[in-house]
């Protein structure tokens, strides 16, 4: 790009910079507003969607063959399972009545734990006996509000897709579950 006069360019650059810089104050805290908006935008659903989409994204094309194969194996597996349970598998809610289900999809993780105010933030391990990457645990909790997070290989995962809400504390997210019916 050749301009015949450097001063012209400088004047235009200044004109643009001035107008944008004058509005700088509006950008203060934008990151907080963005994070808040994302967190409140039905994250519970979108996180799952994101995970599933990322698995299926075009970027993963090298792995596509493996996924298709995996899907086929899943269908076979389900066929076997349905056969074994003779069309009446024990539904998850039946178990949930005995406690609260905490589940996290963490394929490839070596260790998944839950920490929360219900255990004074002492880790309780989740289990994945069949190695499908879905780690689960049922906790018996009395009615109330509980703050918790998962530790996936000791890494803080503060946003459980199944949480009722999230709070930010000490610079990171913590999940919240309300247990019990409540009365209004």
């Amino acid at each position: 790009m050749q301009f015949e006069n450097w001063r012209d360019e400088e004047l235009i650059r200044q004109a643009i910079a001035e107008e944008i810089s004058a509005a700088e104050a509006r950008l203060e805290g934008l990151e907080k507003r963005v994070i808040q908006a994302i967190a409140t935008r039905d994250l519970a659903r979108s996180a799952w969607k994101r995970w599933i989409r990322s698995v299926l994204s075009p970027r993963a094309s090298a792995l596509r063959f493996a996924y298709v194969l995996g899907a086929l194996l899943l269908f076979v597996g389900i066929g076997i399972l349905i056969g074994r349970f003779s069309f009446a598998p024990k539904p998850l809610p039946a178990l949930a009545q005995e406690g609260t289900v905490f589940a996290l999809a963490a394929p490839g993780a070596h260790k998944v734990e839950i920490v929360g105010d219900f255990s004074a933030w002492k880790p309780i391990p989740l289990v994945d006996p069949d190695g499908d990457g879905v780690w689960t645990l049922i906790l018996k909790l009395p009615p109330g509000r509980y703050e918790y997070a998962f530790l996936v290989d000791d890494r803080w995962v503060g946003q459980d897709p199944n949480a009722d809400e999230y709070v930010r504390t000490m610079g990171d997210y913590t999940s919240v579950r309300y247990i019990g019916g409540g009365s209004s």
Binding site: Y67, L74, I78, L81, L95, V101, A120, I124, T136
Partner: peptide, 29 residues
């Protein structure tokens, strides 16, 4: 279509297998 089937299969599989692998803990000290 294939994606939808895959997602459905995955969800169903998770639902089924979850019932077999949970453990019950009462975090009471």
């Amino acid at each position: 279509m294939r994606k939808a089937l895959f997602v459905a299969a995955l969800a169903l599989f998770m639902g089924l297998s979850a019932s077999a692998q949970v453990s019950l803990v009462v975090p009471q000290s």
